Each structure stands twice: as C-alpha cells, then as structure tokens.
Amino acid sequence: MIAMKFRAAALAGASALMLSGCLLSPGQFTSQLELMKDGSFAFAYDGEIQMLALSKLAEMGSKVDETFEAECWDEDFDPRDCTPDEEAEQKREWEAEAETRRAKKAQEAQQMKAFLGGIDPSNPEAARELAEKLQRQRGWKTVEYKGDGLFDVDFSISGQLTHDFVFPTIEKMAMANSFVSVILRDEGQVRIDAPGFAAQGGGNPMQGMMGGMAGLAGMSDEEHAEGESPPRIVIADGDFTIVTDGRILANNTDEGPQRHAKGQILSWSITPRTEQAPTALIAFD
C-alpha cells in the first residue's frame, strides 16, 4: 500500500515535470565541444537520451487510479485493515471523483501532445515518429529507439559560431530542456554550461526527480502490478570535454586545463554522484 502511494506521488511529480519541460535526460554518453579562435566550433554527442514522456512511467501513471483500494491507518500511522464502513465510504468518494480524474488525465494528455510537437505519447508509433523527426534535423546522424523512451543517438555538427548554440533542440518542442548551452558574450567571451550533465540536484533540479524515478524503477517486482515490469530510468553517466585555443577564464573541472594538440582541453567525468554541472568561460582576444 505504501509502495503504491510512493509510486503515485512520484508519478505525479514526473508528470508535472514532463508537462513543464519535456524532461529529456542523458544516459551513458560521450560528448565533446570544440571552440577555436577562428570562430569555428564542433559539437558531438554519442550515447543515450531518454524522454520520460515515452517511457513506461506514462503507462504506469494512467493505471494509478484505475483500481480502487481502501487505505486506513492506526493511531501510530501504521497501515491497518479498513472496516466495511470505512471501505464503503472511501469507495463512494473515489467513484464521485472519477469524472474529475478522467477530465484531468484528458487535459494532461492534450498538453503532453502539444509539448511533444503533436506526437501522442500513448501511440505505439510515437517513438518511431520522433526518431524520424530527429533524423530530418541537421546533426542527428543516427537515432535508434531502445524502448522505455530511451534512444541511442549519434549527433555531430560543426560550423561558425555566430550565434548561441543549445543541445538538444527538437522541432516544435520549444520546452525541451538543454544538456549543453553555448552563449556568446560581448568582448569575445563565450560561456558554456552543461546543466543536463549533473546527475544530482546541484546543477540540474530535474535530475533530482530523475533520482527519485530511478528509485521507483528499482522497486521489487512484488511492488508492481501483476504482469507489469518496472520502467528503465537512466542517469547521466559519461564524459564531457571542451577543446579550445582560446583563453580559459574560468572552469569547474577537477584538474583544470590540460595541454592538447589544438590548444587546451577541459574534461569532466560525469557519474550518478556528480553534483556540479560543467561550466566554463573562455575568451577569444
């Protein structure tokens, strides 16, 4: 019973986050950004990206209120068996709220579809549609769906850095959260932030929810409905590097800049224990 309440609360939180930000999350990956004095840049991301809106969390969320179960507690707030009168009263209240629950779910489904650029996450073909959409965009070399909202992708792009750059961007999904952002400043400075590469709350508040979702995924089989397998939830785990011949003004790596054939390199090893999102400030005088 407690497990069911935890699952319902976690799913409610995940739903709210998905509706507010699409909630993309990196899994295992390697990523590199090159920034050079001549204005050229190159960015690559090879690894996993998960979209919770396409995972089993959505399916589990739709089932939370489908089956009535009375819940009662003793004076010490420990679960106990309900009396027939208590169970009957709770069931009347549950049935009276059925229309409200259905209306809320229908509204959330429409909001989710809008945030996903018209893709219906409950449609079995949604993942294939998204993969096809991504492969039409410049930079997405391969996009392979692995189930549970998890994609294995190979992304690379290069050119002249004449404007800000954010990864990932998905057509018609303006609310997608970023893994890496490159922001141009005055006086030839560039700021790099990678909020998506912080596995804990220090750099990315959404990853805190991801940790809770991972705990949900780790619940034993007995705590899931019969025939229902737990969702696979990934946590950021990989390496991010910046290669540049510019002047590094600030960074939060453990070892600082290291020599590289093209100038200097900054390296971050991202694990489930990483708290600070990678960040750097580089000047091109």
Score class of each variant (00 low, 15 high):
D38R: 04
A198E: 07
D285C: 00
I242T: 08
E66T: 13
T30M: 09
E69F: 09
N204R: 09
W94E: 04
F151C: 00
G39Q: 10
G21Y: 05
W268D: 05
V182M: 07
G196A: 05
E95I: 12
F197W: 09
E71G: 01
G117R: 00
M175V: 14
E97L: 10
A109N: 09
S269G: 12
L35G: 05
P26A: 09
R259W: 08
A217T: 12
F151R: 05
G227A: 00
F43E: 11
D81L: 10
S269Q: 15
P272G: 03
D38K: 07
I183S: 15
Y145V: 00
F29D: 10
A280M: 07
A176R: 03
T67N: 13
R80Q: 07
Q207G: 10
K133P: 00
Q110I: 08
G263R: 03
R273N: 15
A42Y: 11
S20Q: 12
A261M: 12
E255F: 11
F115Y: 15
G238K: 13
L23A: 09
F167A: 03
Q135K: 08
T241K: 14
T162M: 12
P278D: 04
A53R: 06
K104W: 04
G246I: 02
V143H: 01
V166W: 06
R185V: 04
L161V: 09
M219R: 07
E226R: 07
T67M: 10
I170S: 01
M219S: 05
L11R: 06
G227H: 01
F284M: 02
V153Y: 05
M175A: 15
L54M: 03
H260A: 06
T169H: 03
L216C: 05
A10H: 06
E223L: 08
R273P: 12
Q107I: 13
D239P: 09
Y45M: 13
R232P: 04
A42I: 14
K146S: 02
E129A: 04
M36G: 08
S267Y: 11
G201L: 13
G263I: 02
G117V: 00
I265L: 10
L266D: 08
S20T: 12
Q258R: 13
P195W: 05
M18T: 11
V180H: 10
D76H: 07
K56C: 02
E275C: 06
D285E: 10
S40A: 15
T253K: 01
W140R: 02
A42L: 11
K104E: 15
E108T: 07
L161R: 12
D254L: 11
E93S: 02
I235S: 13
S20H: 07
M209W: 14
L19A: 02
P124W: 02
W268G: 03
W268E: 05
E125K: 12
E222L: 07
T241L: 11
R259M: 13
G61A: 07
A88R: 10
P205L: 04
K105S: 15
Q50P: 07
V182A: 03
S25P: 11
F155K: 08
R128K: 13
L134I: 01
V190A: 04
M175F: 10
D164K: 04
S181F: 08
A98D: 11
K133F: 00
K91W: 02
M1T: 15
P272C: 07
R7A: 06
Q110M: 10
G227Q: 01
E86K: 01
L116R: 03
M18C: 05
A16M: 11
I282L: 01
G211C: 09
P231I: 08
N252T: 04
S40F: 11
M60W: 15
A98W: 10
